[in-house]
Design a binder for these strands. Sequence first.
DNA 1: GATGAATGAGGATTCATTCAT
DNA 2: TATGAATGAATCCTCATTCAT
Lengths: 200, 200, 200, 200
Amino acid sequence: MPRTEKQFEQIRKEKKKLIMDAALELFAMNGFHATSISQIAKKAGISKGLAYNYFESKNELLQELVDQGFQEVGEMMQPNQDGIPSDEEFASFIEKSFDMVGNDLRHWKLFYSLMLQPTVAENINEKYAEVSEPLFKMMYTYIASKGNKDPEGDMMIISSMIEGALLYIIVATDIFPMERLKEKVIDGIFRIIESGGGKN
Amino acid sequence: MPRTEKQFEQIRKEKKKLIMDAALELFAMNGFHATSISQIAKKAGISKGLAYNYFESKNELLQELVDQGFQEVGEMMQPNQDGIPSDEEFASFIEKSFDMVGNDLRHWKLFYSLMLQPTVAENINEKYAEVSEPLFKMMYTYIASKGNKDPEGDMMIISSMIEGALLYIIVATDIFPMERLKEKVIDGIFRIIESGGGKN
Amino acid sequence: MPRTEKQFEQIRKEKKKLIMDAALELFAMNGFHATSISQIAKKAGISKGLAYNYFESKNELLQELVDQGFQEVGEMMQPNQDGIPSDEEFASFIEKSFDMVGNDLRHWKLFYSLMLQPTVAENINEKYAEVSEPLFKMMYTYIASKGNKDPEGDMMIISSMIEGALLYIIVATDIFPMERLKEKVIDGIFRIIESGGGKN
Amino acid sequence: MPRTEKQFEQIRKEKKKLIMDAALELFAMNGFHATSISQIAKKAGISKGLAYNYFESKNELLQELVDQGFQEVGEMMQPNQDGIPSDEEFASFIEKSFDMVGNDLRHWKLFYSLMLQPTVAENINEKYAEVSEPLFKMMYTYIASKGNKDPEGDMMIISSMIEGALLYIIVATDIFPMERLKEKVIDGIFRIIESGGGKN
DNA sequence: GATGAATGAGGATTCATTCAT
DNA sequence: TATGAATGAATCCTCATTCAT
């Protein structure tokens, strides 16, 4: 009995995932250029040729990984509201950011790595800016709602703090343990915002 | 009659600098692996072969760049004191960090890039940790001196903020303008520390 | 549908032989260092890259040639006995040595060449000594069985004679024709042994 | 006081010898192709450029070494007579051959090495044949004078024995000690010649 | 869909040789 | 005479990509 089209589709999907997983692992660990298609194929347990059955080129494979990553971010992070977030919502958003990175270190390591080498994945910085935009906006709204004197400025440093903490988690998780850092960052953000009423 | 030893030394010094400059530019821009010796030579205006008269290998060239960078950091950053830094000293230290990065974006872009790909320059994370150690200590001392309840925790988030701000400067200086960011970060740090007396 | 494993194996086996043959020819003729992978590939009718699909490096290719050569020697030369060889056995052994070299001049030229340049194939002298050991022993036994006064000394000069004759065959077969030389050497060896009863 | 022309000449001669010595050492040890001009210059304590002041090319340097070697052989070996050598003269001639090689292993290692790779020093085999010619002739004369039935055949195997012994000395002096070998070879040669009266 | 042999362009590295000083 | 910086051709080797089966 021949497989139905659906089964084929399923197989294709799974194999593709297999390849992408292997690639992500290696790209994140060793970098895009230092990773060969051979290595990816071996890790995925397939032949070199088959990889080209699923991806036009090594660059396209990278691109799909990037897209995949951004899609996950988009799904998880959409500030599903346009109004002013509550304190809980805001805190939960920060927390989610950390969890997202913590649960998918490889994607994020790859992202950061690519952002520092924009020649590889051309549009990554733009995409990242695009994804970040609504988050910045949401942050800004929230901070401003607290009567802050310089909401933009505080948003900048809060973003910095988050970004920096995520970087520590990605690059040196052993130095600054994730859970502690997350907790402290959330706490710190609120302290900054609270202290923003009477300055600047 | 041959040139004097001094003349040779002079030539070597200048040419070496030339090569390192070209390499730094390209490594920072495109990444280590995506940069070929040919490109470096062309940019430096020399022949491929000559590069090997100055550096044993591409890797060694990278290593020298890294060492050079760290040396500059070391020189600029040594917290020339063991006691508790004054507020001015502390602020000036933060400011210097920003200036250091701002004045040498290429080195720093390379550093961050390498830290995310430790396979390339083996010991870079260790070296960075080594360089950071005294700075962490100094921060800790300063924060603790302010009667902070959790100096270590605050140090973590302040470090994060600085690191994140530097990352923004390196990767997206157009979004968050350096001078503004620097000023806001310093301000933010003091607000955090001040607010750290009564919490946690 | 891909080829079966057997087909692949067959292809690999044949192509490998092709490459090794080309390499042996060129190494023997021009020497290891003076032979480039390009030349080998061209002679074998393949691309440069493919050579590396079969051999990790030029050195490994050499090593496999050496091993191949020694294996053939081992197979052909094993003195399949521990006792005292008869006159016929002994003569046949000498004859076989000559034939072995005569039938595989290229391998032997390579061997001799490498033995004179031990930097290239590190262990070749040891391997050669290892292979020669049982032959020396067999010779010694035979000579001693003839009541020789100094079997070791006679073995030395007989070995020298053989080695020297082989060298002539390898390097200047046109001067001393192989068949004649072989015959004369065998005759000479017996004369030496016979004359060894009353001297020294 | 400027040096006289003679002094200059002297200096040139000495420096040239210096370079040739270094080259010989390295060529013999590692082979012609594996030895770079840089290495030679360093070993000779001069600059790369200067080497080219004395030798047109690396190949010419080799050629001069070869010529030098052959000249020494010629000087030492000329059978300064056309008549039949006496037993003592013959024995002394063999002995001298061994001493010549033993005292100048490097030249001889180079020679043998080149003879096996005629591509490098084009005419070496011819030259060697040329040098050997009178020696063969002398041997032949001597052997024939002993009433030998097949002087040419015996000359072949005696030459082989000598050549082989020299090869052992060059390549594996530790296995067959030179002095012993020399003595045994001379003895063996006489035994062969003596036994040549009643056979073949 | 699946395989891995095959290609060839490109990259790191070496080295004989030249040349300004 | 003497130096070593400089060149560029040649070499080893890698790897993305293609393709016959």
